[in-house]
Write a protein that binds this DNA or RNA. Structure first.
Length: 1126
RNA sequence: GGGUUUGUAGCUCAGUUGGUUAGAGCGCCUCGUUUACACCGAGGAGGUCACAGGUUCGAGACCUGUCAAACCCACCA
């Protein structure tokens, strides 16, 4: 077969790819290998279905395919599994933008609704996906198309749901009211990692809240100051020391006067601004953490639409943030409160997807707790994420990930150390729906008659028993912003309410539990959700009737203050007391310790209790709580041995999970005294007839607590006992203080969630029965990509693939998604499978244009890889992407580089063409000779090229094994062009015999094999023109023949090369006709000159003669003296 | 503020654990079309390896410092 003069890639590439695909060898199961052949598996980083492939993808495809092809030729059972990513936010943002740009829609979400918009996004993504898959083929990527996966297809959905449920059951996923990053434009949360900080000019205002407020503060966001609840100063700052702990009431125009407490916190930098920080817990991450630590109130003044809330005051409510800022600054100026106004540059968090400034607002969202200990494992997710690089997963040295280049380990750790809980819920629609279902309490059928105007808000239906309460709600005398409930006795429901939610109250008949039809329901919008942090706050917000006491506020207060130990601590750490149902005499208390860990590693502790009663059948509510907290929030559950406590605890936690402890035996007043607790004063100090004294019980419980916290450090412990034990605990705290520091160290509780306003079900599919609605939110896209290494293999099913290919052998990615993706894959895999996601990871840099700028659409410097393929061939593109780049470094890409490798491809092509023509001339067949005798190296040139080849095989193999792709490519380039073509082929022309050409054929075919991983198309094409019945892709990787490597031979040949170059150079300098044959005498050349005379003469157009000695000479090379005669 | 990377020929970059005379591609200069290849060949010019110290028999590489550039994280309230 005659090869054309130039290699034309476009003519062969598609054909060759089809041939590969048809062969089935992309599929590891079809490779002809022994059963025990080593496995090499690699999951393709799935490209986003947001558009088409760019050069970065081309680079990734080149790297992974080169590696895969190398490993396949090494005889591994090789799997490269292809896939795409639905890229939740990115895709929806892109499609929405296009819809808006088309002019047809202003607000696609509102105008189209969920289903229609999803349909459009789906169509868009399917088109994009089809294009991408085509492009991956075009790049020559040898992946197993039979195993194609998509992060948003059914098997992956199953994996996502399963993972969510597992993590939820382990208490690692929780729903919490915390500050999140909120894109007003995108109407969705964003994770910390999705923020992009941009420098912006801004103003730093220094002001005082009021004329007599002693501490000025500085801010760039004056409008948020309407929600301030504290001023934080550094504890060591002498200027403010005197004020620490003091509380001020200031009137700044907010709905209520601000209660500003001066707190001390190490996070405050005394040198910045005034050295005092106005704390706005609702609109700053750090301030929120201070709130947790210091028990501050949280007042949201900005809502999800970027407008001021009612809390901000009547003057401000409804204003946009910037308008409010102006107004507030004016207010400050008018009242002489503004001290300074400076121009500064600041970093503002923005969303690159939606293109707006991100607001920090408090919201109820789903989070992954990275610090909580995984039940039964003693490690947190964060620990796992570290383990894989330090001690090895599960402490197994062998279970470590190797990262190339190593330096990325450092930045990974740096990132882990700053890791906060991961907000995983998104309000966009394109993504995996959160597998949680709710059924509203009260009327199951009641759906909001009219759709709420407010997006993402919920309508709650709540039954009210009691005309009076209903009326109070109606005329606003009952506060519903803090809680919603039905005061039948003291039953109260705590809700997952968000500001903006609508509550519809129905009056119901207590006896029949049915709605009273003639009374119209009332609707209220929730404006604020508050968690009580102090007793003061609780008293201020609770009606006394809502607390199970007959005392007045003043009485209650003075009673609490009589117990300074407890009072002080509650003041300091806050209290959560959720009363779920009436505490009757026989109420059962669940006491829990909540450990709050903040970024600055200060510990706070919150104590609280949940009282609940059970009736004979076991209370419905207990069952609901059971659903919620069964095995989820506590590592250990201790229970009183008495029947009622046990029964409740069994419902809540299951029989087998309880540790019954005698020391939790409560005092049964009824039995002992025949009186109720409130009447039992007389026994408090004196002791009970026939039983322990009060302080005996206190001591017993105290000992018990000390013991269990000692014995189970770091465990989350629940105590179920008769509610009187709570009184005992109070006594302990009062009389012989419970060691709070001790608790700080030992009681480690994750956030605890009591969400009882609706019944929640977490699972793949909703339970049977009517009225179940799925959570409208979707999951962060990285939640599904985190499962990629195993969801692609059929997890959660224990498939054969999973067994065979996981942990995957290798992974490659750009450093820009190290945190997004690698961290999450490690988290998911080590948590759910207790396996590494991959054994090794190779980090590459990003591509930039010639002037060092990132490629981007907006910069208009994009280069379409397919255009490059069409123009110069895929092989040339691949070579240009992989060479000249150090691992992990950024690389500049420019077209001239591709041109160079196109030329190289043509060089390779023409060597093959020459061999074929030459062989035809001497009448030899094209196929390589098998018998080694016929291809034995005979001449110096033969021995040299064999030595060089084997050296190159050795080095290139080593480079591949250490992921030095660039070096391998450059060495092959050098060898093929400047050794094989420039020297050996030239000499072969002179040698001209059958043996030479056979030898040349073998060397050439080996070179093709070595080049195949980088340049699969051209090498396959030529190879098959030599060996029609074979396929290069599955040929064996050339082995090194050490015996052929000979330093002396290489040295000798180097002398020959130097001699030839010297003569040519001399001829050039003297301007001698190239064709003229020169007579040359050489002294000291020995065998080299005599034996290589013909070769030298041929290469230099000379007639050389070896002489003994030369008195005069023109040149010296090595030890030779050379005289050239004209 | 913490961290990482980079600084080598006109340009773009290699240079693996310290080891002969520091390399490649492009560009530049000179010459050449004898059929493998002008998408080529031959020859050539061009570098104080950012700077200053140090370790070493020996440093582009290792250490310290300085200067310059890029990036990541935290963040200034």
């Amino acid at each position: 077969m005659d090869l054309p003069k130039f290699y034309s890639p476009t003519e062969v590439e598609d054909k060759i790819y089809e041939q590969w695909e048809a062969s089935g060898y992309f599929n590891p199961d079809k490779l002809k290998l022994s059963e025990d052949a080593p496995v090499f598996s690699l999951m393709m980083p799935p490209p986003n279905v947001t558009g088409v492939l760019h050069l970065g993808h081309a680079l990734e495809n080149t790297i992974m395919d080169s590696e895969i092809r190398y490993q396949r030729m090494r005889g591994k059972r090789t799997l490269l599994l292809p896939g795409t990513d639905h890229a939740a936010v990115a895709t929806q943002a892109r499609v929405e933008k296009e819809l808006i740009n088309s002019g047809k829609y202003k607000n696609p979400r509102q105008e189209l609704g969920r289903e229609k918009l999803l349909e459009i996004i789906r169509e868009y993504s399917e088109n994009s996906k089809a294009t991408i898959l085509k492009q991956i083929r075009k790049m020559g990527t040898s992946c197993d198309w039979g195993r194609l996966a998509y992060t948003f297809d059914e098997p992956r959905e199953k994996a996502v749901n399963e993972m969510f449920v597992r993590m939820y059951n382990d208490g690692l996923i929780y729903r919490g009211y915390r500050v999140v990053n909120w894109s007003v434009k995108g109407q969705s949360t964003l994770s910390d990692d999705e923020l992009e900080y941009k420098e912006q000019a801004g103003k730093l205002y220094t002001f005082k809240y009021s004329a007599d407020f002693p501490i000025p503060i500085a801010t760039t966001r004056p409008e948020t100051k309407l929600g301030d609840t504290a001023v934080a100063v550094n504890p060591d700052d002498p200027r403010y020391e005197q004020y620490i702990g003091v509380e001020f009431e200031v009137e700044v125009g907010a709905k209520k006067p601000l209660q500003i407490k001066i707190i001390a916190d190490d996070a405050v930098d005394p040198a910045f601004g005034t050295g005092a920080l106005g704390v706005t817990p609702a609109h700053s991450q750090i301030d929120f953490e201070m709130k947790e630590k210091h028990g501050l109130e949280l007042i949201p003044v900005i809502n999800q639409y970027g407008r001021m809330t009612e809390e901000a005051g009547p003057e401000y409510a409804g204003l946009k943030v910037l308008e409010a800022r102006e107004k507030f600054v004016n207010y400050l100026k008018e009242n002489n409160l503004l001290i300074k106004e400076e121009e500064i540059t600041q970093n503002v968090g923005t969303s690159d997807r939606f293109g707006d400034v991100v607001e920090v607002v408090p919201m109820l969202q789903w989070f992954v707790n990275v610090n909580k200990k995984i039940p039964g494992r003693g490690t947190s997710l964060k620990d796992l994420m570290k383990e894989v690089f330090t001690t090895g997963l599960n402490g197994d040295e062998k279970q470590k990930i190797k990262i190339t280049p190593e330096r990325f380990e450092k930045s990974y750790f740096n990132w882990i150390d700053n890791l906060r809980d991961w907000c995983i819920s998104r309000q966009i629609w394109w993504g995996h729906r959160i597998p949680v279902y709710y059924r509203k309490l009260g009327s199951q059928k009641a759906k909001g008659r009219r759709q709420n105007e407010i997006q993402n808000s919920k309508t709650w239906n709540l039954k009210i028993y009691g005309q009076e309460t209903f009326e109070n709600l109606k005329n606003g005398t009952k506060k519903i912003e803090t809680r919603a409930g039905k005061p039948k006795g003291s039953e109260k429901y705590w809700g997952d309410f968000k500001a903006g939610d609508v509550v519809e109250f129905y009056l119901a008949d207590a006896a029949t539990d049915t709605k009273i039809a003639r009374v119209e329901p009332i609707k209220k919008v929730i404006t604020k959700v508050t968690h009580f942090q102090t007793l003061e706050e609780m008293f201020a917000n609770y009606k006394m009737a809502d607390i199970t006491t007959s005392k007045t506020i003043e009485e209650e207060k003075s009673w609490w203050q009589k117990i300074p130990g407890l009072y002080k601590r509650i003041e300091q750490y806050g209290i959560w007391a959720f009363e779920l149902e009436e505490t009757k005499n026989s109420g059962i208390a669940l006491t829990f310790f909540r450990h709050t860990q903040t970024n600055s590693n200060k510990n706070g502790i919150t104590m609280g209790r949940t009282d609940m009663s059970i009736n004979n059948e076991g209370s419905k509510q207990a069952e609901e709580i059971a659903e919620k907290i069964k095995n989820k929030h506590f590592d250990l559950i201790f229970c009183s041995p008495l029947k009622r406590a046990r029964e409740t605890a069994e419902i809540l936690f299951g029989k087998n999970n309880l540790k019954i402890d005698e020391r939790l035996t409560e005092i049964d007043f009824g039995q002992l005294t025949g009186k109720s607790w409130s009447e039992a004063d007389e026994y408090r100090e004196a002791g009970f007839p026939g039983g322990e004294s009060y302080s005996d019980v206190a001591r017993r419980v105290n000992d018990f607590l000390a013991e269990i916290f000692d014995k189970y450090p770091g465990k989350r412990i629940a105590i179920v006992s008769h509610s009187n034990i709570w009184k005992v605990l109070e006594n302990i705290i009062n009389d012989q203080p419970l060691n709070i520091n001790f608790l700080k160290q030992h009681a480690q509780l994750g956030p605890i969630e009591f969400n009882l306003s609706e019944i929640k079900y977490v699972g793949d599919k909703p339970p049977k029965g009517e009225g179940w609605e799925q959570d409208p939110d979707t999951l962060d896209t990285w939640f599904s990509s985190g499962l990629w290494t195993f969801s692609t293999l059929g997890w959660p099913e224990q498939t054969a693939d999973l067994k065979k290919f996981h942990p995957t052998t290798w992974m490659q990615m750009g450093y820009e998604i190290l945190f997004f993706w690698m961290a999450r894959m490690i988290l998911m895999s080590s948590y759910a499978l207790r396996e590494l996601p991959f054994r090794e990871v190779y980090i590459h840099g990003i591509l930039r244009d010639k002037s060092g700028k990132k490629f981007s659409k907006s910069a208009g410097n994009g280069i379409d890889p397919l255009e490059m393929c069409a123009k110069y061939g895929t092989d040339a593109l691949r070579m240009s992407l992989i060479s000249g780049v150090a691992p992990g470094n950024d690389a500049k890409f420019y077209e001239d580089k591709v041109v160079g490798f196109r030329n190289f491809a043509n060089k390779i092509w023409n060597i093959g063409r020459f061999i074929q023509m030459a062989k035809q001339d001497v009448g030899a067949g094209l196929a390589p000779a098998r018998a080694t005798a016929r291809v034995a190296p005979t001449t110096l040139a033969d021995r040299w090229i064999m030595s060089r080849l084997n050296n190159v095989i050795k080095e290139v193999t080593g480079d591949f094994d250490n992921y030095r792709f660039s070096l391998a490519a450059e060495k092959l380039y050098e060898f093929a062009w400047h050794e094989l073509a420039d020297w050996y082929v030239e000499i072969a022309k002179k040698q001209g015999d059958d043996n030479t050409y056979q030898l040349l054929t073998n060397i050439y075919l080996d070179t093709l094999k070595l080049l195949h991983p980088f340049m699969p198309f051209i090498t396959e094409t030529i190879f098959q023109s030599f060996e029609a019945d074979k396929m290069l892709m599955i040929e064996k990787w050339p082995g090194v023949d050490e015996k052929k490597i000979n330093a002396q031979t290489e040295q000798d040949f180097k002398v020959l090369q130097d001699l030839v170059t010297a003569i040519r150079s001399w001829r050039k300098e003297k301007n001698i006709e190239p064709k003229e044959i020169l007579k040359v005498q050489i002294a000291g050349g020995g065998n080299l000159v005599t034996e290589q005379k013909e070769v030298i003469d041929y290469l230099c157009r000379t007639e050389i003669e070896s002489v003994e000695e030369l008195a005069e000479f023109n040149l010296e090379v090595d030890e030779m003296k050379i005289r050239i005669m004209i």
